[in-house]
Design a protein around this nucleic acid. Structure first.
Lengths: 342, 342
DNA sequence: GTCGTAGAAGCAACCGGTTGCAAAACAAAA
DNA sequence: TTTTGTTTTGCAACCGGTTGCTTCTACGAC
């Protein structure tokens, strides 16, 4: 299309130097069978003409590109933003590029994105599942073509591929234990959609902690709603209307907790004096709300890096290695919203 | 590498149907010179074999890919996260993929990333400049190859390419005017690095507003520092030690304002009663700090979309169209930190 | 029966690299 | 000087598409 100057190819180099393209190609790869003299001449001319290898041609002839496909629900927001940053950084260090797609939590869009990534001939794919993912069938084409796949954060049970997750169970368990230690007797849980493994795990951890400390476990205190701010508002409002309201709330993510906090402020209930509050996920905002919100750090950057590492492992083995599950230990971040000592 | 099943190519289709590859190729493109019968047969077999066109091969033969390179300082953080989301969404609608790179505000990394994008044969490039960008020279290879380029948010004066920016001058002017209307007499400005056009513009708008309202314009009230939270902390601390401290602070971004807010809280100064505070950029956090922070909305999503639109325009003209500058009008978001009326 | 023509399909070159294998160049050994 | 061996280089096919131009077929017109 571009009528004007095209960038030089190895053919141009070969012609100018009166040698064959294969020699040029090998010289550029520093192939041992090419003489130093020739290499020097090729490299020199390449520099002069500002030669840039065409990665598409390279990918085509080699059968695989230096692209890693990343499919996330959305890239804005602190959590995925940081993960993607970690992914890009790690990928870049390994000489890979990152192709980004968003599923918007929609299974159909997710499916389409996978198709596009496959068509783009990516070397591997990193996915955090859309909440609406019904089953693993969308990934059949990926597996068929033996494109390495690594799931992170969001997974689906019974889908046996490599993945990196945090130990949601443990994080929820620890946070619940902490709330109990702070004197909570009736802890409510704003739980997320149970179709997502992570939210199931958080609920499990919550319940296990209650159980092992012989604390009250009232089903009325467990609410299932969206985990956006609005969901938190609805949930907290409902909790306050109970005959026996809770004295602590543990939300399955920070947004829900922030929503709950807004309701509490409106009702002039003090946190942590009247009620303890904690979230999950360490969103950036959580440190700046009033009072600062206790939460569980998901080690986002590390998760992105670990996901890339797993993918690179798979890429470097000729045989598909056995799926490997990488579990990150989350960290409790105790701030004022759950801390009465101080 | 992949020893096992490779995905089918048009050669496989051609062979199975005993027709030539060119016919298959044309049938898939719905070329008018191919009979309906043949098209039907090809399409049917393609579906059966789950044929996926190899986009690299297509890009190679056509001389351009369906890839848009995006180069930002970093993808986490609300501002760039949202922009990138807008970009991805708009690009996806136009059938393009998005290749992400981060410069980490480093000119060298930025340069490298540009090279990689060029080698990846992207159809066009969207860039928000790294703060340390010394001049436009890094972009020479891009212009030479006639790869369409659009800058967004961060630009550099004297570099005449298409760009989409918000009217930082106007935003700062409006916010300053608002602070004056709220009764501020001595407004301080936490200014950013003046190498960045956006921060220069914000400072200009600030000063112009003071001037046109005959307000105090004291050079001691203008501080230049980093615009991270720490910079805001340093700045506010310094301002409070002045013989005549300000009665309002306008920070060139929200992070600096949030840092300033922390200092004020520590010193038990009330916002907005004792001092008015405003930021710029509408970070997510700003709505949740106490008191909620007044700020200027940068219309991030819209900016991303506009950038893609400009790029698509350039891609569709054979002649490089004249550079077009798209200016978005920012919106004032008045919250409690600057509002005494209410 | 021959010619003209439109429609459908195919040949082959090309995009810009990589790579197995053959060939050329040069040096050392016989 | 011929033979053998070692480097160095080149030929040509391939990756999976696209596309200009040619060829083949069939059908109506003269």
């Amino acid at each position: 299309m571009a009528a004007a100057s095209k960038s030089p190819s190895i053919y141009d180099l070969a012609e100018k130097l009166k040698i064959s393209v294969s020699t040029v190609s090998r010289a550029l790869q520093n192939h041992p069978k090419i003489s130093q003299v020739t290499k020097r001449r090729v490299l020199e001319l390449a520099r002069q003409l500002n030669y840039q290898p065409n990665q598409m041609a390279k990918a085509l002839s080699q059968g695989h590109s230096k692209l890693i496909g990343v499919l996330v629900p959305h890239i804005d927001g602190f959590f995925f933003g940081t993960i993607v940053r970690g992914i890009e950084t790690a990928a870049h260090q390994a000489g890979y590029h990152v192709l980004i797609c968003q599923s918007y939590e929609d299974a159909t869009l997710q499916q389409e994105a996978l198709t596009m990534l496959l068509q783009a001939q990516v070397a591997g794919i990193l996915v955090s599942l859309a909440i609406s993912t019904p089953d693993a069938s969308a990934f059949a084409p990926v597996l068929e073509r033996h494109v390495p796949l690594v799931l992170f954060d969001r997974f689906i049970s019974g889908f046996d591929v490599s993945s990196v997750v945090i130990d949601d169970y443990q994080g929820a368990y620890d946070m619940t234990t902490h709330l109990l230690a702070q004197g909570a007797r009736r802890i409510a849980h704003l739980a997320g959609p149970q179709s997502m493994g992570i939210f199931r795990e958080r609920l499990r951890g919550f319940q296990a902690a209650l159980h092992s400390h012989n604390a009250v476990s009232d089903p009325a205190l467990i609410l299932f709603d969206s985990l956006y701010i609005e969901g938190g508002i609805r949930g907290m409002t409902a909790l306050l209307q109970l005959p026996q309201p809770p004295d602590a709330v543990f939300a399955a993510n920070d947004f829900a907790a922030i929503g709950a906090l807004q309701v509490l402020k409106e009702k002039n209930l003090r946190v942590p004096e009247d009620l303890l509050l904690a979230g999950f996920g360490d969103e950036l905002t959580s440190a700046y709300v009033e009072p600062p919100l206790s939460t569980v750090n998901q080690l986002n950057l590390k998760m992105g890096e670990a996901a890339v590492q797993l993918l690179l492992n798979a890429l470097n083995k000729t045989h598909g290695p056995a799926p490997h599950r990488f579990v990150l230990k989350p960290e409790l971040i105790v701030r004022r919203s759950s801390n009465r000592q101080n």
